[in-house]
Design a protein around this nucleic acid. Sequence first.
DNA 1: CGAAGATTGTTGATGCAGCAAACTATTTAG
DNA 2: CTAAATAGTTTGCTGCATCAACAATCTTCG
Lengths: 154, 154
Amino acid sequence: MKDGAQAPPVVPEVLTQYIGFLLSRMGTIAQKRFSTRLEALELTPRMWGALNVLDAAGTITQHGLCKRTGMDPSSMVATIDDLERKGLVERRAHPSDRRAYALHVTDAGRETLSEGREVVQEVQDELLAPLDEAEREQLRSLLVRLVTAAGNTP
Amino acid sequence: MKDGAQAPPVVPEVLTQYIGFLLSRMGTIAQKRFSTRLEALELTPRMWGALNVLDAAGTITQHGLCKRTGMDPSSMVATIDDLERKGLVERRAHPSDRRAYALHVTDAGRETLSEGREVVQEVQDELLAPLDEAEREQLRSLLVRLVTAAGNTP
DNA sequence: CGAAGATTGTTGATGCAGCAAACTATTTAG
DNA sequence: CTAAATAGTTTGCTGCATCAACAATCTTCG
């Protein structure tokens, strides 16, 4: 019966004192899970993030998306290419700047968004299974403060 | 004065509701910061993690390290190579298994560990600057529970 | 006005980490 | 003793981040 005595794996106690390690590790795990589940919609995490921010912004340029998502401009090109190829996003002419595109979410894009939200909710519920509702909100709030602060210093 | 009206960047409100996104983003940020700071000691985050776990374990095999750190065996080979080349770790013969190595931290390795702990502590303090002591402990505890649970399900 | 500099989107090159397959040497199971 | 599993290693593929360079366009300011 080796399954009963399964190694106490995955979180060496030494490292549980390093919040940085925990953040980085949990981040990787989350990313992997979302990535796997989003495959069903033929979306990558980057596409999903961009689509969400774009939808919330209404209209925005690629550069604007880069600033908000922290994504590199060159990666953004590929991401928008992918989204446009799937018909979820359109590159329209920007009304006042001929260098830039005015990005728009299509109806198909909004459809995909609502499907995606269900999937994402499921994954999130799995990841946060050990926490009750109050703890989840606590975690969320702490993370928002950290990400916000970290984004304004570097 | 455009610097006063700096864009409210880095955390689009849409995404603050996705704890998965926050985790993944904060994890990336943390990793980058640590990576930068550890360069002063000529260490990568992977080397640092392996060195810590190894030190805490006393003696352990590469495979054991892989299980505990979640690192890929092929990556582990390169990581141990690096640590050994810097004289921080030794690959000794395993007493009872001629396939495996018994890894040991050298005196130089312990020296580096104590230097590294100071650096890591600094970075952690910077990252967690917005949180008071109680909140940090709260975050740590929540993350440990999540990582532990996530490590036992996949 | 008009030249200099900044911005937007794009391409290409580089490097790293994760993943999987194949392989050797050795140990364990049946 | 043979078959299967394990430890370590090598190699190649993939995905993503980062960087430098570039063309088109906008902005600034003498």
